[in-house]
Write a protein that binds this DNA or RNA. Sequence first.
DNA 1: CGAGCTGATGTTTACGTAAACATTACGCAA
DNA 2: TTGCGTAATGTTTACGTAAACATCAGCTCG
Lengths: 341, 341
Amino acid sequence: MSRPKASRVSMADVARLAGVSSQTVSRVANGHPSVVGTTRQQVLAAMKQLDYRPNSAARALKSGQFRTIGVILFTLSSTGNSRTLEAIATHAALQGYAITLIPVAMPTQDSVLGAFTRLGELAVDGVIVIMEVHLLDAATVTLPPNVQVVVVDSDADDRYTVVDTDQADGARQAVTHLLELGHRTVWHVTGPEESFASQRRAQAWRDTLAAAGRDVPPPLHGDWSAESGYRAGLALAEEPGCTAVFVSNDQMALGVLRALHERGRAVPADVSVVGFDDIPDASSFIPPLTTVHQDFAEVGRRCVEGILRQIERGETEHGTALVPTRLQVRTSTAPPPGDSR
Amino acid sequence: MSRPKASRVSMADVARLAGVSSQTVSRVANGHPSVVGTTRQQVLAAMKQLDYRPNSAARALKSGQFRTIGVILFTLSSTGNSRTLEAIATHAALQGYAITLIPVAMPTQDSVLGAFTRLGELAVDGVIVIMEVHLLDAATVTLPPNVQVVVVDSDADDRYTVVDTDQADGARQAVTHLLELGHRTVWHVTGPEESFASQRRAQAWRDTLAAAGRDVPPPLHGDWSAESGYRAGLALAEEPGCTAVFVSNDQMALGVLRALHERGRAVPADVSVVGFDDIPDASSFIPPLTTVHQDFAEVGRRCVEGILRQIERGETEHGTALVPTRLQVRTSTAPPPGDSR
DNA sequence: CGAGCTGATGTTTACGTAAACATTACGCAA
DNA sequence: TTGCGTAATGTTTACGTAAACATCAGCTCG
């Protein structure tokens, strides 16, 4: 085990060994052009010999930039959040930025406020918020100056740059698919009320049915969890007229599938089910789930792009970027029973 | 929108407004006892008025500590990793530490090496590695001094502090449960070869069967994905003697369930299935899955504890902490067919 | 042949904080 | 009263880096 006492090697140490000034070392470290080849070689050799590593704290202090992006989120337990985070981390690393995680213990304004307060002292150049913005409103005042914000899952709001999956179009594709199979109408299991994503999926479901002149059944409410989907599914199993369900995420769809199975309603023979997200497991549900594919990687990529545009180029126009979705058809959907097509 | 030009407020600014020296401001900021009440009030008022926020870069430069922990991981797509990360982030925040995420694009030694090199320039006091350590070996040399390491999923190895779920005991519980139900033996679907977790679960499966004097069927190999579990499940469905399967994680178990269902083998009437992890969705599988519950939150908590012990108290004894597991019995397990108990 | 320029390198300084040391002022004991 | 200790606060300095400015040598061109 190496002794931990080894104090850090600084530019001055390298400079001394290489017989140059520390400024020259700095120039070599930052790839400044006006250093002649032989000098550069000496410095590089000295760096290597001493195992020199730049001190990011000093660099940040001098430059005022941390090359770090903070990500505020409530939970990693949803596939969407963790996949988005992963994509953000990957793309940020590619651009030479680090990611600092700022978990919010509970989705209350107080906790969010606390997170933002801590953030004030944190070394970040920008923040990506993966959370409903209405929780953000009260916190705005405490945001430090010079810190940029990009938001996922937001109300359309010109105070922030927003990146989001095209929820409405995804829901429309799901409902249209079921109608085209011949179903007279489509039932719906929503996510939690506070979620803008859930709201938009529900609204698009309603609109699509209305546009086709169909009845709009009362929506059932879930909370994204498979368990809540199971409860909704039990209720749906009691509705004899229900032949098609659009569930607001895949986990709840899993619960719906189980409830229907337990109640003896076959999927897709009796009831067709469509989910939303296309989590990796969806293709292994019983039966494999037809679902709206979300491109989380793209969402993450655009978040990083957006925040870097603000940090590095000082752009402040707050646009909304919608990432398209795609319906992934598997075997949980079919024409309604009695349909002979 | 506030102008982003607002340059940061420093201690000197606060000191000027409060009519004290900047050192007094520093003392107030750090809760130093020897500041009299009235002075403290003045300083606090000035801080508030100017919206002062300490500059963490300067603080880190001065103190040599970043109050930040780096977390290196390969992917967030597995439930275990993201739940562990979440727990780490929560507990670190509680202790006043921030988390920096260091994603490794691919699980190759080169990528890991790259991550560690970047890490050298990164502002972290310690690192938690959620990854098989054999990928770590080549990278060790490049680890900066003064950076402590805690490892999850490791070989027993006294070079690092290791925190891990008690894989072996979990697997033993799973197999014992099936044997006690009356099954003559238990088949097994493994995770990827490189994973120590998978290796240990497989070894414990083998040992438990051997200790009970049972035959050890050839293990089937998966890669943690539901799809790979499905393929293993298809093979198992062809084994008439197979009445019980221990699958190395819940996602693969999901695939096994689908394969058995498609091949007309009823679970648990014909075949019993046990998983590992107890992901939230496991209770909504068809049928709800009996599985080994992992306490990811506890793993995360102990990781943070371990790394802080090294960072703050300089302890360097490298122990291994095993977090216990618990068998969560649901309805995917039953006595074998023909068993009349 | 020297003025002026250019390219390479060195010197000074500032970033914001906090440890170490210095200076007050006040109270209490001799 | 004087001297000394102590509590409260101020002053100096260093952390490692990089921008700004300074210097110096060599070279071109009138």
